[in-house]
Design a protein around this nucleic acid. Structure first.
Lengths: 212, 212
DNA sequence: CCCTAACCGGACCCACCGGTCCGCTTTGTG
DNA sequence: CACAAAGCGGACCGGTGGGTCCGGTTAGGG
């Protein structure tokens, strides 16, 4: 995607992919604590190779995260063409939950690495943008209450992931998503939320404010 | 509480408290990865003292978690006497969210340690029981839809915690809780959830099934 | 086909971390 | 008040994990 820095040699590019895949797999199985050596072994590559491509373990994690985020926002943009705007929103959310259930360790890490990583921020903003379009379309169709924003959705998504984790079970996640659906149904004026939906700027503020 | 093993000497008991507090504080600030040495330093005791009281770092974490869980269930039982049953439920949830926002690292750990720790399981079951009573009371009063169970609530609670984390802001958490409130409003029969609420047995099943 | 720059593997380094050990101090009981 | 038992601190240990280094290998342009 953002390949501003000159293209890699063929073997280097191949190894990069191997590493990204091996890392994702390893993280999914054993959490973020797997050693870089283990990842290298899985990829069939020397440890030195890892650190030449990704200057630090954190960079490697971030690269995998960015990968996944782009997948999600791409899916969101596809769904903009789906017939039922309301269903499309929940379809994306469902897909994201399923993905996050596999790669849970990664999504846990987002908030922590977020702080320092420009690439993740960018991918995240892109995902929010994608979600935003999808949501607006559903709201215009009257399928979703219009006092919530894309970040409200994203938060509820993260909530569902976290909540269903100990059950390790898609049915439970589906139940939670049904509750989200209930929460998002249009409501009479008397029951509207007060305050405005959160924005990326709110996160930014917490970010810089939270640095001790 | 469960003080079956003989009482500690005065200085030992004092140090135990110091350690528990120092640990909670350290975890809140830097996550669970703080070294035992650092915790000992904060508590003003030697590292050996830590390991005499808590045979392993995990035991120390578990002890802090149990502490917090008992606080929550106690608060729940107090609230059984509150005048408005519906409001009482949300008051407990709000309090729990606030507590979890401070001790977020601890709550993240619950699922992982859960697997092996009897004490945490016990405290957790106790909390579920407390929540259950509060919830049933609200349902009898018609304030909450009756197709959800205590674990549904607990899951949504965890969801809100996770969701509002990057904002690091109580207002945002309050907004999320309002959405939970919307999700929990009584609904017509056509919109009831299918399936039964999750139970502790479901967690247990995932637990033993999930051991690789 | 050849040569160089880019790339590769994995041995190696070092900081740190959980946990142990032991000589000294404190507690509280008789 | 004396003295055993319980507690204490912190030096120490083995292991592990992130990150470096360098002699050998390969890609691919001229």
């Amino acid at each position: 995607m953002p390949e501003s820095t000159k293209p890699l040699r063929a073997d280097a590019e191949r190894n990069r992919r191997l590493l990204l895949d091996a890392a994702a797999e390893a993280f999914a199985e054993h959490g973020l604590d797997v050693s870089v050596g283990e990842i290298a072994r899985r990829a069939g590559v020397g440890q030195g190779t890892v650190f030449r491509r990704f200057p630090t373990k954190e960079h490697l994690i971030a690269a995998v995260v960015v990968d996944r985020m782009h997948q999600a926002s791409a899916r969101g943009r596809e769904l903009l063409a789906a017939p039922d705007p309301g269903a499309a929103v929940f379809e994306l959310l469902t897909a994201m939950v399923k993905a996050a259930q596999t790669d849970r360790a990664l999504f846990e890490a987002v908030d922590d690495i977020f702080l320092a990583n420009e690439d993740i921020r960018e991918a995240h903003d892109d995902l929010v943008d994608s979600l935003d379009q999808l949501l607006r379309r559903a709201q215009d169709a009257g399928a979703v209450r219009d006092d919530v924003g894309a970040l409200d959705l994203l938060m509820m998504f993260k909530g569902v992931c976290e909540a269903s984790r100990p059950f390790n079970n898609v049915d439970i996640a589906a139940r939670q998503l049904d509750l989200v659906r209930a929460a998002l149904r249009p409501v009479p004026a008397s029951e509207r939320l007060q305050g405005r939906p959160p924005t990326l700027a709110d996160i930014e503020r917490a970010r810089v404010g939270g640095e001790r």
